[in-house]
């Protein structure tokens, strides 16, 4: 069953068409990769889905409901969580408090803001346990190395109890060992009932864990399919190698 569907999604920035008629279908329970060279419009697609940008044209349906044009916090409440390409932890807060902020999502309505957050600490610790950050719970978020800050971003996304998690370049800046652990974490997220869509530059990472890949180039979908289908697509090879973006492992 398809969880997220975009129809003719288009976004213009002045005269530049960053996203051009993208039709994307993300099925429930899958790991869907969105790849493409720099400036292909991948992050813009995420920003459109999560409400940070309003589409120039096109529709976005999530679980059968139109969500394009909704505010980001509304999109979150409907069940879509995201991480950021450049990590954005709340550096004044501890790791645990960062997760609490996300876990509070259902308390930000009505009288919720006036209820104490203390009782939720146990649940936030469980989530930190899940991503392997439990022993750093009381450390300031700013003190975490980049690899762990990415885990914290994922922990916050999970704490939003979403149906769909959008990961924006989760492997950027990570070591090989950290990437291995990230793969394992993404698989566990899907195993626990969530769907994952991710934007990534690292081809090996995408090829290894995604069931379906959508390839964007200059705002358009140029290919879609399983990792092996996409890897052998001449247009994809052209887009990557032609643009001098090829990584040997593509």
């Amino acid at each position: 069953m398809s969880l997220l569907v975009t129809e003719g999604l288009t976004k213009d920035f002045g005269g530049l068409r960053a996203v051009d008629g993208v039709n994307l279908v993300v099925g429930e329970g899958e790991i869907h990769g969105i790849i493409g060279p720099n400036g292909a419009g991948k992050t813009t697609v995420f920003n459109l889905i999560t409400g940070y940008l309003k589409p120039t044209r096109g529709k976005i349906h999530f679980r059968g409901r139109r969500i394009d044009g909704l505010e980001p916090h509304r999109v979150v409440s409907l069940g879509i969580a995201r991480t950021f390409q450049i990590v954005r932890p709340f550096t004044d807060l501890s790791v645990l408090q960062n997760v609490l902020v996300a876990w509070g999502h259902r308390n930000y309505y009505g009288l919720g803001p006036f209820k104490p957050f203390g009782p939720a600490k146990r649940k936030a610790l469980e989530i930190l346990e899940f991503v392997g950050l439990a022993e750093r719970a009381y450390v300031g978020a700013a003190a975490l190395p980049i690899g762990l800050q990415r885990r914290l971003e994922i922990a916050r996304a999970i704490a939003l109890e979403p149906k769909l998690v959008l990961l924006d370049e989760p492997a950027a800046g990570l070591t090989e060992e950290e990437i291995t652990r990230l793969k394992e974490l993404v698989l566990r997220i899907v195993a626990s009932g969530m769907t994952v869509a991710l934007v990534e530059h690292r081809m090996t990472f995408v090829m290894d864990i995604c069931q379906l890949i959508t390839v964007l180039d200059r705002g358009k979908v140029i290919a879609e399919g399983t990792p092996s289908q996409v890897a052998s697509d001449p247009e994809v090879i052209e887009a990557y190698l032609g643009a001098g973006e090829g990584e040997g492992d593509a």
Binding site: Y52, E71, V76, F84, R88, V101, G104, K115
Partner: peptide, 26 residues
């Protein structure tokens, strides 16, 4: 109030409005 969700939400958007929105904060 310093121990409520409201305070936590304020601390969050006070530091980073973009990230706070992604946490479901209006």
């Amino acid at each position: 109030f310093s121990r409520t969700w409201g305070r936590l939400a304020m601390e969050a958007f006070g530091e980073d409005e973009v990230a706070a929105k992604a946490m479901g904060i209006n």
